[in-house]
Structures are given as C-alpha cells and as structure tokens.
C-alpha cells in the first residue's frame, strides 16, 4: 500500500484537477447534450424512474417483494441484524419522517409504504465508494459491481434511505429456491435493488412492477414526455423521500 512521493503528487495533482474540472465539464457536457437534442428535435436522454401509487398498494400484499427477492436470489434471514432486503415495506411516517404529524389522514397513518433504492440523481453512495464498485449508469440506474466491492460499507453509512444491505454471512443457505439465471451474492459484499437491469436488457419490465396486480408500481423513462410515469406525475401530486438532502431520489410517491 506504499506510494512514493512522486506517485502521490501525480495522483494528488490529478485528483485535485479532476475535482476542480468536473463541475465545469458537467455543465459543458449538459449544454452540448441539450443543444444536440434541441437540433434533432428528439430527446436523447434517458432517465429511468418509478412511481409508487400508495393509494393502490394493498395492505398485507407482498407480491412485489416476493417477485423481486425470488428472481434476485435475495436470502430470507429472519434475524434483523443480518437481514437483506431490496424492496420492503415500512410505515408511512417512518418512510417520510418529514411529513409526520399527529393528524395524518387519508388512511395513510401506519399504512405500508413500499421502499427500495431511490436510484438517486446525485447518489451519495456512489460519491463515497473507494473502488467505483457502485456507480451510476447513463440511464440513471445506480449499479453494484459485486466483483469489485471490498465490503467497507461506506456506502451504507452514506445512504440516507437505508436501501443497502450487507452480506454479514454466506447468503446461500437462506435462499429458499435459487434462480440459476441470476447470481447469488457472497459473504462480505453490499447489495441493493438494481432496477432489474438484467431484465431491462432483455426488454422486460422490473419484476416488482410486473407482479403488482393493482398497478401501484409504474416504471419508465422520466425524460420521455409521453411515458406512463410522466403521465402519472402530471396528473397526480407526488412526493419523494427526504428531497432536502439533495440526492435527487427517482422514486416518486402518489399519496
């Protein structure tokens, strides 16, 4: 782990340059992209997002959770210490602590809210990862590279939504039925929802969305004005979890 001074100065200098240059490059590249798309008259950008319609979400139903955890080999570990979850429910007022008050109406008080990775626009987990094992794709999916993760759990400390789980032990014995088409994880790596990127690659929609009979989950490209997600965002008032933190969560909730 030794680095000589010359090497350090090189990396250090590059790093500082990089940090200084990044916002500038970001702005320039955005401007260029906007110009290009304006010229062509089409939007080239793609930003995947999800709308959760809590009004349609049935109490006690676990279809989306079962579908996701089944297809992704998420182990079921009863002990909350070692628990792993990609999508789960939490009481509304716990999920939206900023919205909590004595008189929450509309049947929302104590009702379950579906939680998953927010696939943030400005993800703090990606910012802190020392190996780029977690990174943001161009379409907005915040991905995990399980091959590269060293298990430092900096991302778990950085995520303000509790969306990340760590494999405190070998998960295999806790997977009821292994789906051979998707890898399990190994002990010592962090995991979380991947927006079903492996299904998207085959032209399928996310497993949770597909499994929901009540249309409580809608998935799509939020940059596409005619998409279903945009239609719901237009016609409903939506909220997001902890927007004040500047992470830009991409899971929208109709309440």
């Amino acid at each position: 782990m030794k680095i000589d001074r010359r090497g350090f100065l090189k990396i250090g200098g590059l790093g500082i340059l990089g940090v200084a240059a990044k916002p500038v490059i970001d702005v320039v590249s955005k401007v260029k992209l906007a110009e290009a798309s304006a010229k062509k008259g089409v939007l080239v950008e793609k930003r995947l997002a999800m709308v959760v319609n809590l009004k349609n979400c049935k109490d006690g139903c676990t279809d989306c959770i079962d579908a996701c955890h089944g297809v992704h080999n998420v182990p079921y570990i009863a002990n909350p210490k070692d628990e792993i979850k990609w999508i789960w429910t939490e009481q509304y007022e716990k999920a939206f602590p900023d919205q909590e008050h004595r008189f929450i109406g509309g049947g929302m008080k104590g009702s379950p809210a579906i939680l998953l990775c927010n696939h943030c626009d400005n993800p703090s987990c990606v910012r802190v990862c020392p190996t780029k094992a977690t990174f943001k794709r161009e379409d907005g999916i915040v991905m995990m590279d399980y091959h590269r993760c060293i298990g430092c759990r900096f991302c778990m400390a950085a995520c303000p939504y509790g969306s990340r789980s760590f494999n405190w032990r070998d998960p295999r014995p806790f997977i009821k039925k292994i789906n051979p088409d998707f890898p399990t994880r190994t002990k010592g790596v962090v995991e979380k929802c991947n927006f079903c990127e492996e299904r998207l690659a085959k032209g399928l929609i996310p497993a949770c969305v597909e499994s929901c009979k009540n249309k409580a989950l809608v998935f799509g490209n939020v940059e596409e004005p005619n998409s279903e997600v945009r239609e719901i965002l237009r016609s409903n008032y939506t909220i997001r979890r902890k927007p004040g933190l500047g992470t830009g969560p991409q899971i929208y909730y109709v309440v």
Binding site: Y146, I178, N179, P180, P183, T184, R185, T186
Partner: peptide
C-alpha cells in the same frame, strides 16, 4: 476461482 461463490453451478 471464486466464481461459484455467487454464480450458480449447473445441476
């Protein structure tokens, strides 16, 4: 190789 820690070996 650690491949099989995660990737499922054929039955």
């Amino acid at each position: 190789p650690t491949c099989w820690n995660c990737h499922v070996a054929p039955e």
